[in-house]
Amino acid sequence: MAASPVQPSELTIGDLREYRSDILESLLAEQAAYWNRHLHWDFSTSKETLLRYIDSRNLYGFVLLKDFAPIGYSYFIHENHKAQLGDLFVSEAHRESYAERILLNHTLRTAVVFPGVRRIEGQLLALSDDLPEMEVYGSRVRVIPRLFMILEGLPAARPRSPSTGLIYRIWTERDLESTSDLICRAYQHHVDARINDQYQSRAGARRYLRNSTQHPGCGLFFRKAARVGFDRLTNTAAGVCLGSLVQPKIGHITQLCVDPRFRCSGVGRELLGQALDAYRAHRCEAVSLTVTASNQHAIQLYERAGFRLLKRFPAFVWESC
């Protein structure tokens, strides 16, 4: 369905904390249907969590209205020096870049003035991918294109030749410290470390790993698909692949990175292959992942494994001067 033309004069903006969950429930139900239909992702758990937070008045954000009816919403989470863009969604009947920009501008400009905020970051999968970069209080909001890719109908397992000198096994909590170090090494000077600043320090990487493996933000952690490769000589992590289930039979690769010393040696291919084997054994119908559009080496790896582009979406980064 094509979006109906929306005139600026028809739209108003309201504080998210002034609205009850029952007023926004149909909008979030549409968003859940959108995620299921377009991204093969079960959004129902996130929906129920959001409704509870809305009723508790604990979310900072905005509601976009047309004729006093909600057609979109956005919110952010404030933590120490950083504001995280949680989500932004506009109803399909009114989904135009202008409507999305209204919500995004209000959200960014509100987050910037929170005490202590020096950085804003976020990845908005339901947003249009053609939004331009902008300035907020003198600092540029950088827009970094990302890709949502999917592998449907998992092919039969292919014979592989694991890299010599490495031991591959299922990732466990005892690997937390070694893989935290690995993430810092793997993303040093990498664009993904600009998108997610947790990759820039060992403490941040540790927090990222705990969130990925203990909380359902990107699906339920699927341990059978979590693989780590260790260098036999130094006993350091050479690569790691983590995965989740975003539906009972839909997997999602949440992390795949390789130590720079072991790149182009088949480590990433082996880790990805072992994870896909685990999803195949679980009888998954599809597996998805996200990747930065400029990371051509990773995209080629995924395409060789059978992944195809499903959607483009933007990541946003703002840092104070």
Rank of each mutant, 00 (worst) to 15 (best):
C241A: 14
C241G: 04
C241L: 09
C241T: 05
S244M: 03
S244T: 13
L245Y: 04
V246W: 04
Q247C: 14
P248W: 10
P248T: 10
K249F: 09
H252W: 07
T254N: 12
Q255M: 13
Q255E: 14
L256C: 07
V258L: 04
D259C: 06
R261M: 09
R263E: 06
C264A: 15
S265T: 08
S265A: 11
V267C: 02
V267W: 01
G268D: 05
E270Q: 14
G273E: 04
Q274M: 14
A275C: 12
A275K: 01
D277C: 00
D277T: 11
A278D: 09
A278Q: 04
Y279R: 04
Y279K: 01
R280A: 13
A281N: 14
H282Q: 15
R283G: 05
A286Q: 10
V287G: 02
S288N: 05
S288D: 08
S288F: 03
L289S: 03
L289T: 02
L289N: 02
T290M: 10
V291S: 06
A293D: 14
S294G: 09
N295K: 08
Q296W: 07
H297P: 06
A298V: 05
I299F: 06
Q300R: 15
Q300E: 14
L301V: 12
A305F: 08
F307Q: 02
F307L: 11
F307P: 00
L310F: 09
K311D: 07
R312T: 15
F313C: 09
P314H: 04
P314Q: 11
A315V: 07
F316H: 04
W318S: 01
